[in-house]
Simulated scan of single mutants.
Amino acid sequence: MSGVQVRGAVVDEQTRCVHYASARDVVAIRFYCCREYYPCHRCHAEAAEHPAQTWPRELWDRPAVLCGVCRSELAVAEYLDADSKCPRCSAAFNPGCSLHQHLYFG
């Protein structure tokens, strides 16, 4: 899905942003409120003109996470079960992202 647009303060093609730019910061989240991908909650807060809404648990089977390495879209449940790596390409994801899950997934 290389045609997926990621909004916000993106600094590279693997979805790193000005807020989170480590080697493992390679995911973008499709926000439930606007269905747009952003690298992080801070990028959404700065660029979107509305408050963020979390994905309801009953919709966790929907694509809502983008791997910045292989550009695969992952369902919320698939991402949460992935043990900090992409189930498609095995790229390492930042395990610290789990500290922000409550901002994305209700």
Rank of each mutant, 00 (worst) to 15 (best):
E49P: 10
N94A: 06
G3E: 07
E46F: 03
A45V: 06
C34D: 01
R16S: 08
R71K: 15
C86F: 11
E49W: 13
H41I: 05
A47R: 10
V69N: 10
A82D: 02
Q101F: 15
L66T: 02
E58P: 03
G8Y: 00
A52L: 13
S98D: 10
L80M: 15
E49S: 14
H19A: 03
A21W: 11
P87K: 12
R88N: 08
R88K: 13
V4I: 15
S2L: 00
E46S: 08
C17R: 06
V11A: 04
A48L: 02
C67F: 01
E36L: 14
F105E: 02
V27W: 00
S72G: 05
F93D: 02
A28V: 06
F31A: 02
V26M: 04
R62H: 11
E46I: 09
V26F: 04
Y79S: 05
R57I: 15
W55L: 14
A52R: 12
H19C: 07
C89D: 12
L74N: 05
V4G: 04
V27N: 07
R71W: 09
R62Q: 15
W60G: 05
C17S: 10
Y104C: 05
L66D: 02
G106W: 05
A82Y: 03
T54L: 09
M1V: 03
V69G: 00
C67Y: 03
D61F: 09
A28N: 06
P95F: 12
S98N: 07
V76K: 08
Q14W: 04
S84Q: 08
E13F: 10
V4Y: 04
V65H: 08
A77G: 12
L80Q: 12
R71Y: 05
R88T: 08
C86W: 11
G68N: 08
G8P: 00
K85W: 08
L103M: 14
D81Y: 02
T54H: 04
R30C: 11
M1I: 02
V6Q: 02
Y32Q: 11
I29C: 01
C67A: 01
V18Q: 13
L59H: 14
P95E: 09
Y104D: 01
D12T: 13
E73P: 00
